[in-house]
């Protein structure tokens, strides 16, 4: 039963993604055309609050519900993998108008062609797994 928190968090997140229109292809298009502040305000305010939360956690050594210190793992140092991977992700994000959270949100909202995007994303992940030793990291 302790697992019940995860679908609850997911439902909350899904509702926020839908209602904020972060799951709308149109909003992503508008953002990359710099024609609205909406998406920038959304990500910007999430970050301002997020930075304050993480700083608070660090300064006060906040523990999680199991009593372990909360840590966000450091990522490996590199520029190429983040930049190249990031650019490829951005190309897909703008084309499909959905990143990995909103894909599932749109499935629930009944826009079933998004399942093709999800299938592509799973295949893309699989291809990465097979090629990763040949790629610069």
């Amino acid at each position: 039963m302790k697992n019940i928190i995860y679908p609850i968090i997911g439902v909350f997140f899904g509702i926020v993604m839908y209602k904020s229109e972060a799951a709308s292809w149109f909003r992503i298009y508008e953002m990359f055309n710099f024609q609205s502040f909406h998406m920038y305000g959304l990500m910007g305010s999430a970050l301002v609050v997020g930075i304050i939360i993480v700083q608070f956690i660090k300064r006060n050594n906040v523990k999680d519900t199991q009593g372990n210190p909360i840590v966000i793992a450091d990522k490996d140092k590199s520029i190429s993998r983040y930049l190249i991977g990031g650019i490829l992700f951005g190309l897909g994000w703008a084309l499909a108008g959905a990143c990995p959270g909103p894909m599932f949100v749109l499935t629930g909202a009944g826009y079933f062609p998004i399942l093709v995007v999800i299938l592509g994303a799973i295949l893309g992940t699989w291809i990465y797994g097979m090629l990763r030793h040949k790629l610069p990291h």
Binding site: L88, F89, P100, G120
Partner: peptide, 29 residues
């Protein structure tokens, strides 16, 4: 739609995360 998905899947794993893991969690940290 398939190409869009392929790029998102490949790119997010190559970059080690997507908008939630990098743009929100990572930058917050």
């Amino acid at each position: 739609l398939l190409i869009g998905g392929l790029l998102v899947g490949f790119g997010s794993r190559y970059a080690g995360g997507c908008t939630s893991g990098h743009s929100i969690s990572g930058i917050s940290n």
